[in-house]
Design a protein around this nucleic acid. Structure first.
Lengths: 195, 195
DNA sequence: TTGATTTATTATCTTTTGTTAATTACATCT
DNA sequence: AGATGTAATTAACAAAAGATAATAAATCAA
């Protein structure tokens, strides 16, 4: 079942958009369920699709020269994601996108959605909103790398998204913060000792 | 003089957009020249404006608790910038935006431009393009923090934008890479010694 | 529930970075 | 040219992070 309300709430779709406008979009949405640890997008893929997380959790990672998986980002419920390598750069995806929990996904063809938006004035605002949210999330993360040290980044991460600590293995969180799992463990200890 | 060609070249404004469409926009563009070191946006400002760099160089920085200026980003010719605190978050700007060279700027009211775009279908593609470019630039930077260590980040910075090394003081570049100026100096020495 | 596997912590050592201060190099201005 | 201010380098030490390995804890599957 498509839970329109949640999407509306999060993405400002309401203002001036009728169900009729939305139906154009929803006709082309597919649903897929991924088991924990299953890949949604694999490295090398070139499927031009955009994904929306109904519920669950997704990480994106790549494999470096040493063969280590480096997690570069996390996405959770009510967020859109896509391989920007594929949809924006027209390249093969350098990254994997993997479910970290059993995850329900809505997805559809990226170019088709762009076309639908091009042809329906009312949807432009929603697209702008989605891009803005992504941009802001990105800017905030960049700022945290330049403005704070790892320990502060970790504390801000907790404050910002407390539930993720219990849903995401530390080793992935460490990568997202730009440090090693061993170092994160020491930071946690340091913080605990201060109290 | 407004050099439309340069803007067109960089921002995909050409396809299907007539000079008439553009004139709507250009009617509301102002020009300003900033001397090296002059502030374009000050911390605390809430002027809802968007800026385009005709030529020159701009850094964005904030002042931390210790009173140190931390440079979080750089913008150069043919790029748009704005205080995202102001235009996207409706807050006062946490950041300064300062010319690092004598800089020619085109600027205008952010909300007005948004409105013009809302009312002219043909401009939507251009706005999307601008947002995408910003998003891609941001994602690339985030990736570099999670995927590479400082030395690699510096080498990639040089490879990506060689001219900036000669235009931007090292202390600002260091901040952008997430390290201290002293550490950058050591990295430079290490690289030189390897050869 | 137990055994196997993965994850997190701890320990040790090396490397890098941060911090502060001194020194050198560079640029600017009168 | 000489004085002044700013930036970059170097030095010395402390703090933090990376790497690797060993251990403990937690998770998963049979």
């Amino acid at each position: 079942m498509l839970d329109l309300n949640k999407i509306n709430k999060h993405y400002n779709l309401k203002e001036g958009i009728s169900l009729e406008d939305l139906s154009q979009v929803f006709l082309h949405i597919h649903q897929a369920n991924y088991k924990c640890n299953q890949n949604i997008i694999a490295e090398g893929s070139s499927k031009r699709e955009v994904y929306f997380i109904k519920n669950g959790l997704v990480r994106t990672y790549w494999v470096n020269k040493k063969g280590e998986e480096i997690t570069t980002g996390l996405f959770w419920e009510s967020q859109f994601f896509a391989s920007h390598d594929i949809v924006l750069l027209n390249k093969k995806s350098r990254f994997y996108y993997q479910a970290l929990e059993d995850t329900e996904i809505l997805y559809g063809d990226y170019d088709l959605f762009q076309e639908i938006v091009e042809n329906n004035q009312k949807l432009h605002k929603s697209r702008k909103f989605v891009f803005q949210e992504m941009l802001l999330k990105g800017l905030e993360r960049i700022e945290s790398f330049t403005m704070y040290k790892p320990e502060e980044r970790y504390l801000r991460f907790i404050a910002d998204k407390p539930d993720l600590i219990n849903r995401v293995p530390d080793k992935y969180i460490a990568n997202v913060l730009g440090i090693t799992p061993v170092s994160l463990s020491r930071i946690r200890k340091r913080i605990a000792d201060k109290k």
